[in-house]
Every structure is written in structure tokens, then in C-alpha cells.
Design a protein around this nucleic acid. Structure first.
Length: 489
RNA sequence: GGCCCCAUCGUCCAGUGGUCUAGGACACCGGACUUUCGAUCCGGCAACCGGGGUUCGACUCCCCGUGGGGUCACCA
């Protein structure tokens, strides 16, 4: 590459028109990793040139989302930097000035066409089956004509004057040479009639002024890159290196969308995906370590990062695999740290419970949840008695009378347990099974349901220890009455 | 439709001309362990889009087709 020695500076440039998008985070991860790998800088630039749709809340959410994911930027609207401001709405003069430069050089021209005319033009093109694009109506207006329009304060846009013939191309770092006939490139609007720039102008101007060395962005931008190349050329600037990452896909292979997939970073946080797990998963969607390793830290990725391990085909975002991976991370987290995370967000409503009790519960639940948000649902019975059907108490191939007797026997046996702890409890129940000459399962199921109110729960005796003697015997009493009522019938 | 990008198991990721009867993971299906679920361990299922080249030899290189995707806004 010609820029081998160039100091690495990358940027993520989200548009604050909605919640932070997972696709943005995906690109941001690669920006972050590459910058760290190369000892360069990573900037966050807010592209709020769409005045209709940009909101301050969205900008805030984007920063929160990125921060949560752990993608720390070195320069941005919140922390400033050598090329501030990092919000495009605050750089309007710059763009207008540069548009003027282009006008003077003859690389751009004023277009006075009204939106209605453009709409009509497009409609006609569609009907004729012609190729689309601006028809060049204002491309060669005379000096006087322009002066007259300007005098009457007619609104206008500034368009890029794309050369008639030839080709425009660039070398994508991971895809190689890409080039397009200039005839295919539209005379793109650079400056809107409201005086704000379009993405194309603002992007090129800022990337140059901010000394961005590598433009890492999604594949959907490939088709407009030639326009950008033309712009760099018109300004007499050296273009940055382009890298187009594959697009994240829905199950049907179309580009990921919120209709078919959760795309908000905030959602992933709410669900309790661990940032490290999500980063690992996202990394795997475009990059691999080799050696068939799928679980790796961002730190490891930074160390081993190379562009030639980037994939160019679009990966389907597989939520099941993400869940599995998140589960792996959850299981690998020390229980006290896990509890900390659960309490921080918080993913539980049980924030006022004693920490020691919560920690014991976390140990039991850790290997059976894949999202932190699953915590409450799976541990509810530790905190409140849940209602359940008396039938649930009855083990397979047994009846209510048997169950009532077993429950009574359990109650009595438990009364003789001196130390209310996992080991002694299990020992006692084993003894009881022998005494009653029944299978352990037939004993444990009624006990489990009586104590946890569920057929599926955390390990029985550990759970009983946490619940405590009093609560257990109360619940046993309730269960006995429930099943007793069945016997009466 | 024009242009552009892409093409290995259902999905994710390896494979960079011979070591491929193609490897790992998720999911799925069995089995083991087990007080339920889960976790864990073991095993199974399952792919090089098609056709031409190049070559002693192609999953790997080239071309064409096919398929999928993106893009054609005063949105990014």
C-alpha cells in the first residue's frame, strides 16, 4: 500500500437519526481495533447534516451505546480533539467554503432545478426504462443566466460535475481494484438548497481535514466511493485508503434491518449481552484469528489484527450463536463480578436483597442463563412463593395420596436435620428414600415443586439451603395442603 | 433494469495449487453424567453453485453463466 507509513487515523461517522445501530457498532469495532493495533487515533464524528432527522437524543444514545460496548474514541464531540468540532452541523461554513472552491474550479455547478422537476424527470426515466440520474439540465448554464437566477434569489443546490468519459476507480484494501465508468456516476448534489452539505461533500471534506488515513465503512458505500474519489481529485487532495466491510445480514440475506432483527445496541444492553461477548461475536462476523478459534478477546484481536483476515462476504447475524457465545462469557465470569454486572444495569429488581444471598443464587444460575436479563425470571421463586397447580407435585406414575404421604415424610425427616445445609439435606433425603423404599426421583420431584414451585429449577439442596429452614417448611406445608385437597376429591 | 460487490455444511468461521475421503463452532439428532433444567463430555448429520479453461494437479488462479446482495434521494 502506498500509505504504509502513514499515521493511522480512523473515524466512525454515525448519523444521529435513531438508536445506535449494531451495524455501526460493527464498523466501529474494526475502527477501534485497527486504530489500537496501529497505534493511531479513533475519532467519533457526528454526521448530523440531515436537519430533519437528526436529534440530540439520538446523538446521546449513540455515544452511550458505544461507550457501553467499550469502543473508546480518542476524539469526538464530547471530548474534543485537534480537529474540533466533531459535529458536522457545527462545521457548515467549512462545507460552503469548499463548495465555493469547487464552483470556482469548475468541478461543480449550481443547479436551480426544483425538486418537482427532478421528481418528474425520475418518473419519466422510470417509465422509459432509462438509466437513472440527473439529466444535466443546469450543467452548462451561461454566466448571465446564473447571475440572473442568483439575483432573483432562486434557491439552488451545488452539484458535482462528473467528467463525461473515462472511468473512476479506487483500490479497496480488502477487495482490490474497483472502478466504474464515469457515465454511471450521477452529478451528485454536494450542497443542499438549505446550505447544508450532503454526506458526500461533508464526508470528504472532513476526512481530509481530520487527516483520516483509512475510511472503514460498510459495503453499501462502495457505489458512491467513486464520487468521493472524484471529489478528492477535484480538491487536489490525496484520497484515504478505503476499506469496505461486508454488510451484516438478516436471515434472508438482505441487509440487516430492525424489522427482521434487533438492531439497536440499547436492546443488546437491555437483554444483558456482555459487551465483550458482543464484540467477540461482531468481530467474528468479519475477521478470524485462524486456528479455528472463535472465542477471543478484543485485546487478542488488536494484537493479531491484519486486513488479510477480513472476510468480504456478508455474514448472517445469527442470534442463536450470539446467545451461546454470551453464555460462554457469562460462565467464564467470576460470580461476584457477574453479580456486580447484574446489579449495575440493573438486570434485576432484587437490588435490595442481601448481597450474600444474591451471590449464592448467581452461582446456581450462572450456568443456565444466556442473557443477564434472564436472571429474574429464573430466580423469582427465591424471593416469592409462586402459584402452581397441585398436579405438578405428583411424580410420574404416582398419585396424590402417595405424594401427600411422601410430603409428610419429608417434612418429618427435615425436622430432624440439624444443620440446614446442602450436604446434610441431601444425606437426609437419601436416607429417606431408602427408608421409604422409593426412587429418589419420586421423592425429589414433589420436594422440588413444593420448595421451588417449579418442576425446573436450580439444584434442589443448594436451593433449599438458600431458602432456609423456615421458608422451606412453610412451602412444604402449602404443598401438603394442595395435594391433600386432591386426595379428598 | 444499469452499475458494483459477493459465492465452502441450514448459519458463523478455517482452508491461500498437491497434506481435503474439506477442519472447527452454533443449531439439530443420539449417548454419557445427573435430583429437574442447564452445564459438561462423547458421537452423528451436513458444504467446495454450474460450465469452460490454466496446470502434472484445482475448493484454491482466469473467463462465462447462475444465484445472492448493495446502490441508483436536496438520507446517511
Amino acid at each position: 500500500m502506498t500509505d504504509r507509513d502513514r499515521h493511522v487515523r480512523v473515524r466512525i461517522a454515525p448519523s444521529p437519526t435513531g438508536p445506535p445501530h449494531v451495524g455501526n457498532a460493527y464498523i466501529g469495532l474494526f475502527d477501534f481495533v485497527f486504530a489500537r493495533h496501529a497505534g493511531g487515533e479513533f475519532a467519533l464524528r457526528i454526521e448530523d447534516t440531515d436537519r430533519e432527522r437528526s436529534t440530540a437524543e439520538s446523538e446521546q444514545a449513540i455515544m452511550e451505546g458505544f461507550k457501553w460496548l467499550g469502543l473508546d474514541w480518542d476524539e469526538g464531540p464530547d471530548c474534543g480533539g485537534p480537529h474540533a468540532p466533531y459535529r458536522q452541523s457545527e462545521r457548515s461554513d467549512l462545507y460552503a467554503e469548499h463548495a465555493r472552491m469547487l464552483l470556482e474550479k469548475g468541478a461543480a455547478y449550481r443547479c436551480f432545478c426544483a425538486p418537482e422537476r427532478l421528481a418528474r424527470m425520475r418518473k419519466a426515466q422510470r417509465e422509459e426504462g432509462e438509466s437513472f440520474g440527473y439529466d444535466g439540465h443546469c450543467r452548462d448554464l451561461g454566466e448571465e443566466e446564473i447571475a440572473a437566477k442568483l439575483a432573483e434569489k432562486a434557491p439552488f443546490t451545488v452539484r458535482l460535475k462528473v467528467p463525461e468519459g473515462g472511468q473512476t476507480g479506487f483500490t479497496d484494501l480488502v477487495r482490490g481494484d474497483v472502478s466504474v465508468p464515469n457515465a454511471e456516476i450521477d452529478d451528485q448534489i454536494l450542497l443542499k438548497s438549505d446550505g447544508f452539505p450532503t454526506y458526500h461533500l461533508a464526508n470528504v471534506v472532513d476526512d481530509h481535514l481530520m487527516e483520516i488515513s483509512h475510511v472503514i465503512r460498510a459495503e453499501e458505500w462502495i457505489s458512491s466511493t467513486p464520487k468521493h474519489v472524484l471529489l478528492y481529485g477535484a480538491f487536489g487532495w490525496e484520497a484515504p485508503t478505503f476499506v469496505h466491510m461486508p454488510l451484516l445480514r438478516n436471515k434472508d440475506k438482505t441487509k440487516i434491518s430492525k424489522r427482521k432483527n434487533p438492531t439497536s445496541l440499547l436492546w443488546y444492553r437491555e437483554q444483558g449481552f456482555l459487551p465483550a461477548a458482543l464484540r467477540n461475536f461482531l468481530a467474528l462476523m468479519g475477521w478470524s484469528m485462524g486456528e479455528d478459534r472463535e472465542i477471543f478477546s478484543t485485546e487478542e484481536m488488536i494484537h493479531g489484527f491484519t486486513w488479510d483476515r477480513i472476510k468480504t462476504s456478508g455474514p448472517v447475524f445469527d442470534m442463536q450463536k450470539l446467545e451461546w457465545m454470551n453464555g460462554e462469557y457469562i460462565r467464564a465470569t467470576p460470580p461476584d463480578e457477574l453479580l456486580q454486572r447484574i446489579l449495575e444495569e440493573p438486570y434485576t429488581t432484587r437490588v435490595d436483597e442481601p448481597a450474600e444471598k444474591l451471590l449464592e443464587i448467581v452461582k446456581l444460575i450462572q450456568e443456565r442463563i444466556n442473557r443477564l436479563a434472564d436472571f429474574d425470571e429464573q430466580t423469582n421463586f427465591f424471593f416469592e412463593r409462586e402459584d402452581y397447580d397441585a398436579e405438578e407435585l405428583i411424580p410420574r406414575k404416582q398419585d396424590a395420596a402417595f405424594t401427600r404421604d411422601v410430603l409428610d415424610a419429608i417434612g418429618r425427616k427435615l425436622g430432624s436435620v440439624e444443620e440446614w445445609a446442602t450436604e446434610p439435606l441431601e444425606l437426609a433425603m437419601r436416607e429417606l428414600a431408602d427408608e421409604l423404599d422409593c426412587k429418589r426421583g419420586a421423592l425429589y420431584m414433589p420436594l422440588r415443586v413444593a420448595v421451588t414451585c417449579r418442576r425446573v429449577s436450580t439444584p434442589l439442596f443448594e436451593t433449599m439451603e438458600i431458602l432456609g429452614r423456615d421458608e422451606c417448611s412453610e412451602r412444604l406445608g402449602i404443598a401438603a395442603r394442595k395435594v391433600g385437597a386432591l386426595v379428598e376429591d
